[in-house]
Design a binder for these strands. Structure first.
Lengths: 200, 200, 200, 200
DNA sequence: AGTTAATCGAGACGGTACGTCTAGTCTTATT
DNA sequence: AATAAGACTAGACGTACCGTCTCGATTAACT
């Protein structure tokens, strides 16, 4: 038997992965999510709808939720550039509003459901954080740290705690559904952000 | 309080519900939760361990998660009296710390898992809110409103938003698991609470 | 309330058996048999329809089929007097025709179904034989033996074998359903009876 | 004979049916029938004993009794060639004796139980007739018709009625169990056959 | 051009839990 | 006692998916 990967570059024998199957699977999943929750989604239904063998799915994804994450990421594709604003506070406030709005529809439901499924699969949770939350959190963090450097925000800030406070409120209402995520909530969040970031 | 039979009207015909079975089911569920997640928990395993027919479970609970909620509520029974404190702020800070600590062990995991399961069952979510969150939230709300009346806290407060901000941070870290719920987090939350409540 | 059975007999303590319940059970069973097979009949459905507790049924009958046997016997009540005829052969032939006709409707179906259920319950089979077949078989036997004594029938006859031959054919078609139990069958059976009884 | 794949057309897509599973199921059923009645037999027990998923059974058989029929047919495989004899009557008599003997053991019990189960499933009854009775009946019919052509038997015969008379007697005693299927019965049946076939 | 090897759709496989159903038993209060 | 009501344990039902496994058929890259 020869080596699988010869000098320098990748050297795959055999039939390459079918791009058509991959996108058929993602599209089928997307379509099914209109009428089904992530939990009620089944690999069999995806395979059926995509006209694909189950094994093909299992070859490339570890679980149905992993597919959903991929669908979600493709849905969001460059959807969330950090908004512009005069001050760092303005940027943060607008971003908070944006997220509240974004989470109002199907997307919010799917995020909540992925988080739910990921409670029972640590790797999935890590993966979701890496592919969905990480960049946005880093961006927000960057803005806040800039605000601190500029003297706009308090020097004593525990940045992570503040972020979890503001975005956690959104996620908590998303998940616990005990109160609406309405314009008043957006405004109040903005006020709280102002106070916390400047005074804390 | 009167006896169950007399209060409220007619005594029902037929054999009454077995208290022994009820508590066997709750105990079995409690025990199984040591080694299983809520998702991996099965009604069959509970029935088996409790020495109970499956039908008996289905007669009294709509789903396994409903049982888990009942177990959780019995676990917490008068576990969380609102702490004493000199000022309203002190009470809130101590309560936040208490919750963070409480959520660190098995209890936190179960709360997260119930929330996860409840993402796919609206009634369950309502029920969980009613039996688990509602009282504690009302208590916290009472303290904050007292603080407002006394002039200790800001008059402009959106109390619900503030509560979701503080407790949402805890729940967000519980669910997303991206950062530890450690003493530093407790301290930071306390600071943020102080700022938000007094200045906002 | 006075005692129900005083003078002349046993005086049982406690509440006596309810005649109303007994007949409600039999009537309910009778009614259900219009739309259900004996197999699909359930004790629960009988109890429900009769407005009777399940335990009451179990107290007085060992199985649902036992109830069906009782219903059947009451249905047949003095239904099958041996027909009159000039000769013994004529009596037998008419009786065969009568049975073929009787078995054509619901009654035949129920007999077949009782026999089916009784394949798995030896006591039931014995009971069914005793209450349903025994008298009629004895009567037929009597006629045939009279024919033998009179010289109308062959002296060499194995009476039981002949009976099983003639009535067995009916029961076989009733159960295996491979051929109709029609007038031609009646006629042929009569011919075979004549030959067998006289020549054998 | 050709291979299965080629004969009759296109090879089907997908994994082919497992011959090992099929025979494991039949063997398990065979074994269980030693200690259980057809009624008490359960699909779960068969699946368990065969080391097979329940779905595999349901995929290929409509009911447990259908499996039992298949087991029975495989048990009988070329078990019952029509016996040789000098005359047609001799053939019929020997065949009757053979069937009586064959039905004495486990096989008789199973035939009775299948007929019992099939009282509640018309398709099953048809299937059982086709796979178990049909060929043998046709063979007997052939012999009798030959006898008629040769002048050995009566020209007036209703062949089906005669067959049901002779074999019905056997089946009736098998099912009603009111009399033994012993050598005397064999002899009497033979006598009756002789009379009926020649004189009728 | 032929060979090689991983891919593909299809669908059968062993397994497991589901929620339903009925059996037969057992508590109640009532008659 | 016997009754109607109905809760109880037990366990099979037939279904649905799981994740794995054969199949024959494709499809490139490497001889």
């Amino acid at each position: 038997m020869k080596t699988e990967a010869t000098a320098g570059g990748r050297r795959l024998a055999g039939r390459p992965r079918s791009a058509a199957s991959r996108s058929a699977i993602l599209q089928a999943t997307h379509a099914l999510l209109d009428t089904t929750t992530v939990r009620d989604l089944t690999i069999e239904a995806i395979a059926q709808k995509a006209g694909v063998g189950k094994a093909t799915i299992y070859r490339w994804w570890p679980s149905k939720t992993a597919i959903v994450i991929e669908v979600l990421v493709e849905m969001m594709n460059s959807n969330t550039p950090l908004p512009k604003g005069e001050t760092c506070l303005a940027v943060v406030r607008q971003h908070l509003s944006l997220i509240v709005k974004q989470y109002r529809g199907r997307l919010g439901r799917i995020v909540a459901e992925i988080l739910a499924e990921a409670q029972f699969d640590a790797e999935l949770l890590t993966e979701f954080h890496r592919r969905f939350f990480a960049d946005r959190r880093a961006a927000v963090r960057g803005v806040i740290e800039a605000g601190v450097r500029d003297g706009e925000f308090s020097r004593a800030l525990d940045v992570d705690a503040v972020i979890d406070t503001l975005y956690g409120a959104i996620n908590f209402r998303l998940i616990a559904r005990h109160m609406p995520r309405d314009p008043r909530f957006e405004r109040s969040l903005g006020e709280i952000a102002a106070t916390t970031l400047r005074v804390c």
